[in-house]
Design a protein around this nucleic acid. Structure first.
Lengths: 225, 225
DNA sequence: TTGTCGGCCGATCGCCGACAA
DNA sequence: TTGTCGGCGATCGGCCGACAA
């Protein structure tokens, strides 16, 4: 997967250490992750282990489309750990080709997920991520061919209509929703890399045992706009 | 799973050794099964190993509904193997309660699998497996509640209509076909144990790399009628 | 006896503008 | 600006008898 696409799908709140950087491995967290309800987790306390990140794989679940990272940690002695890291040649920050990825994420409303198969495209998304429509036409309409994390191409009908005017995805949208098993509260991420290279990602709603946050009703994901 | 139901789903051509019977285990076959295209299989030749069947589990795949048997083989010395087997107390033949299981299997036609959601019930099946219809009614019709290998109940509308008259399954049939992902060439097995206790099983079509048998067009499965 | 077809009716899908938040 | 609704037209599922193999 393209690192930039992976990053956009993961969202701004997700941070991945750089290759060969020094990190602490917390066995405690690992145990709690594997058996959250286990009483063992509170009785066994282990110290964090100094490690070096020896490999990073950016992946996506073939079923749920959720992105995740596979890190290999190499344990090192405290001496090595405290030394400044040997300067391996690697790209600073992300891999910086000089082409930006424009991104927009939206939490699906009930209408987006359930009703007559349409998706309300927020104005900002249509203006800055989607290719421009021909507003001479009536109605302005185009087909969008968008690639998901697996390289599968989806096509959507993008139309600008209604009173007052608004952007919508119609034909092709419900097929996408059903195929990805999206429900209200999940998110879609639209990305444009170069001109006419578009991508679409998915984020599942955080598991809410109840109705979600008690105040405000929205959780901040650190996304564009 | 009820052994009688398992047997009917498997078909008459499938034979399972009895418990504690003596058999030969052929590693060669095992290897070929695991890697059919491997060249290793032809170079490594192992002798058959004398064994005793120490347990038998009749099971069904939770996804495909296909029935299969899980046998535990216990290796024994040739001496033990040639002795007559110690007479463990076990039922002769199958488990013979004195209630028969009436069975009928049919290979699905294109119309059964694709078209308007109906299933042509062969006369013999309707007469001897299905509960009798009330032929005073016009048309004669009834609901059938049939249990699959997992204990799930399916209901079908069984009607006798058309000119000339014939038995059909209508409402409920296509739901079953879609759910089990049946296609033309697959088979369904209808079973009746006691009065009004009905079961339904499934057999996938043998994997045909081409169009199947060149002559005759049907493969004999050793089934009733 | 039973496999396939076209007709046809009803349910659902999904596109639409009208509102109102 | 955009979320939800009711309307409604197109499509599809699926029940039917008519044939013919």
């Amino acid at each position: 997967i393209d690192p930039k696409i992976w990053r956009a799908c993961a969202g701004a709140s997700v941070q991945i250490p750089t290759l060969f950087s020094r990190v602490y491995y917390f066995p405690q967290g690992h145990v709690e992750h594997c058996s959250p309800s286990s009483t063992i987790s509170s009785s066994v306390v282990t110290s964090p282990i100094p490690c070096v990140v020896s490999s990073i794989n950016l992946l996506a679940d073939p079923i749920t489309d959720e992105v995740f990272a596979h890190l290999t940690l190499h344990p090192v002695s405290p001496d090595q750990f405290n030394f400044p890291p040997s300067r391996f040649p690697h790209h600073e920050g992300d891999d910086d080709e000089r082409e930006e990825v424009v991104t927009f994420a939206k939490v699906l409303t009930a209408s987006d997920a359930n009703n007559g198969g349409g998706f309300s495209v927020p104005r900002y998304c249509a203006d800055s991520v989607f290719p421009p429509l021909d507003f001479q036409a009536d109605p302005p309409v185009q087909k969008l061919f968008i690639v998901d994390v697996h390289g599968v191409v989806w096509d959507f009908r993008h139309i600008y209509r209604g009173t007052p005017r608004r952007h919508l995805l119609t034909t092709g949208w419900s097929k996408f929703v059903n195929s990805k098993k999206l429900i209200a509260g999940d998110s879609v991420v639209f990305m444009r890399k170069s001109v006419h290279e578009m991508f679409i990602g998915v984020r599942r709603a955080p598991i809410s045992n109840n109705k979600g946050p008690g105040v405000g009703g929205g959780s901040y994901f650190g996304d564009e706009y």
